[in-house]
């Protein structure tokens, strides 16, 4: 199947924005998941609920809130523009921010479960061997939580790929800038006489989704296999 330039553009943008979204939420996602997994504090359930908000809010609300805070007139947006000269709305970076926010709770959920399953006794043992917190985390906690990290990353990536509402609200639907696959599909559906083009995009979306599912399955099997190989030594 030969793809049109517009279709290629939509695929390229989708992947770019999906990857960028996952890349920026990974560091804070890991930090937050670890914090929730290893600490008990007053108001933990409130923090937990706040993190899960994007999962239950209408995406348009998230997009609107982003616009209000990160837009040129927003509190953070104004500062960003004044100090760094960065303006996020209506750019692909802005789309990555929006998809990242929507994908964040999925990453944190999966990772947190995995981190909670890491035995704190191993971390204590590492500390008595002279490892500081950072070393304990990077050499013991995180490596043992890799299955959760993989699952969370794949889930977040898939979520970012399919993100629509927050993206269109915050970053709009600009060809070659923020028009990802879902947005391109939406545009075609809105245009009379483009049914076959819409169907093509639909098929492409299904193929990409299937491909990432199979890839994640393969990745998960491979890590599991590697761990088993080690055990079967």
């Amino acid at each position: 199947m030969i793809l049109s330039p517009a279709e290629w553009e939509a695929i390229r943008l989708s992947l770019l924005i999906g990857l960028a979204a996952v890349a920026w939420i990974l560091p804070p996602g890991i930090a937050v998941a670890w914090w929730l997994a290893r600490h008990d504090f007053r108001g933990k359930s409130i923090v937990d609920g706040f993190i899960h908000l994007p999962l239950v809010l209408p995406p348009v609300v998230v997009g609107y809130l982003l616009l209000v805070s990160l837009g040129r007139q927003g509190v953070v947006g104004q500062w960003l523009y004044a100090t760094l000269g960065v303006s996020l709305p209506f750019t692909w970076q802005g789309a990555a921010v929006a998809s990242g926010v929507m994908a964040f709770p999925l990453l944190v959920r999966a990772l947190r479960l995995s981190l909670e399953a890491v035995d704190p006794k191993l971390e204590a043992a590492a500390r008595t061997l002279g490892a500081n917190r950072w070393r304990v985390f990077t050499t013991i906690t995180l490596p043992l939580a890799i299955p959760g990290l993989l699952t969370g990353t794949v889930l977040a990536f898939a979520r970012a790929l399919s993100e629509f509402g927050a993206t269109i609200t915050f970053a709009s639907n600009i060809p070659s800038e923020t028009r990802t696959l879902p947005l391109a599909l939406y545009t075609l559906i809105q245009t009379p006489g483009q049914e076959s083009a819409a169907a093509r995009l639909c098929v492409i979306a299904i193929i990409i989704a299937l491909f990432s599912l199979i890839a994640s399955e393969w990745l998960a099997r491979r890590t599991k296999q590697r761990l088993q190989e080690r055990d079967a030594y």
């Binding site: 006794k121 204590a124 043992a125 590492a126 008595t128 002279g130 050499t139 043992l144």
Partner: peptide
């Protein structure tokens, strides 16, 4: 981690993702 006090725990508490060599040289 700064006390330099070695501990042998009731359970061995070896790190499952390191080989024996890696466990021995960890600290």
């Amino acid at each position: 981690h700064k006390r330099r006090i070695g501990v042998v725990f009731q359970e061995a508490r070896l790190f499952p993702h390191y080989r024996v060599r890696g466990n021995l040289t960890y600290g």
